[in-house]
Design a protein around this nucleic acid. Structure first.
Lengths: 233, 233
DNA sequence: CTAAGTAAGTTGTACTGTACAACTAAGTGC
DNA sequence: GCACTTAGTTGTACAGTACAACTTACTTAG
């Protein structure tokens, strides 16, 4: 039998958690512990950590656990992003992380505990302002690129909406993520043809014409459109 | 300092290697060793194995090493597919694999050594005929789905072509992978507009009208089209 | 009560890339 | 020379969006 005594890399899971706050795309960050000997003490990092071979039955379960520990959110959109592994990404030795990305709806309420160690950071460009521990900037940038790319031809932003929203609300989220305006009528046609949302018997009141409220259809998987938005130049 | 003495999962890399042989999409498989104590002895599996923390500087280097060990091919198309990790996918304990998929051109010549332990298997449906070790069937199916999906809107099949090929050749590869016929004139228009290939000053002779030969433009990254082929039903 | 302002939502025309189908072109074999 | 086959082109139809102008429904100022 093979001995299996050779050195094993460290195995972690990290989660890029996106939400719309103050009308802006933001990512959740946690502060690294400040204990002596911890790598990147007090720096901001993506939520994540070691796979616990006792508690986590698989990688996705581990990601869900970390997501719930930080946000209290259960059952949001969760997708595998990729993995990053090398001899030098963690000073403690050869390490590989399995990265996920998650979209959470509305304006989520964070768990109150340890609020100083958890915070939302707005996405500007492809990343966030603070320096991040490990190679977490690379991972975050990959997540932003993947999100932007998919928003061109999928209904992913629907997972960032609160339970009831208007079509202009949804369009603003698309525009915020893509960083460019979209055509109102084409947007509406596409969304309504997608069999993705259904109107509720209410209107959003405001200082001008009320807007129809919609909600996501039950347990709706993301819709893939046959074309991207607008001319890609 | 954190002790790092907790148990670590096994870390492996597996590669799904696709090529067109006999006009059919095929995947490379290797036979598991037959030694006592080895999991899944003598079964077919994807090429791969443990990360070697001494030799592999990162995951991609590890995938490239395994690719070259099995095929002798250097520098083909290589893309990360995802990762699979759980407590029960390997009888030796909690294990996570980082899966890649690769497209190799033409009709590749395998390394001769140990030819009995390496073989191509045609893709039928979403998988291959033989039973596979571990969860390699899941991984292979995910690779086939990803490839099919991307072929709808990218130029990936170009990486499966020999150095010189005709447009009908390329179209046949598209059709083989997608499992449905494509429109000749729309296909040609799309491919020629993509700035992906260039004609060489030669024709493919045959029993009927000669066809223009093309080659991939130098170091060409895959092209993403703004629409999928055909009506998706 | 009316008019201005604003955002929601609709309508009509133009355009782009593909679908579909018929056509022409260039070779082989008999 | 003619039938056959595959390469490659041409022309019309169509689908989904881009663009822009329009109508609708509400609030607020006067």
């Amino acid at each position: 039998m093979e001995s299996l005594t050779f050195p094993r890399p460290l195995t972690t899971v990290d989660v890029v958690i996106f939400a719309i706050l103050d009308g802006v795309l933001q990512a959740l960050l946690v502060r690294r512990p400040s204990e002596k000997g911890e790598p990147f003490p007090d720096m901001w990092a993506l939520p994540g950590g070691f796979v616990d071979v006792e508690r986590d039955k698989d990688l996705k379960a581990c990601a869900i656990r970390k997501l719930r520990e930080k946000t209290g959110v259960a059952g949001p959109y969760l997708e595998q992003l990729g993995s990053w592994g090398s001899s030098n990404r963690d000073p403690r030795g050869w390490s590989a992380t399995h990265a996920y990305f998650s979209l959470i709806p509305g304006s989520p309420v964070l768990l109150e505990q340890g609020a100083a160690d958890v915070g939302w950071s707005p996405i500007t460009g492809n990343s966030v302002a603070p320096k991040l521990a490990f190679d977490h900037r690379d991972i975050l940038e990959a997540a932003v690129r993947r999100l932007r790319n998919k928003v061109e031809y999928t209904s992913l932003p629907a997972y960032l909406m609160p339970s009831e929203f208007t079509l202009p609300d949804l369009q603003h989220v698309y525009e915020t993520i893509l960083g460019r305006p979209l055509e109102k009528s084409a947007f509406r046609t596409r969304m309504l043809a997608a069999d993705l949302i259904e109107p509720v018997a209410k209107m959003r009141k405001g200082p001008n014409r009320p807007a129809q409220l919609y909600r996501l259809k039950n347990a709706k998987a993301p819709v893939y459109f046959a074309r991207t938005f607008n001319p890609p130049r």
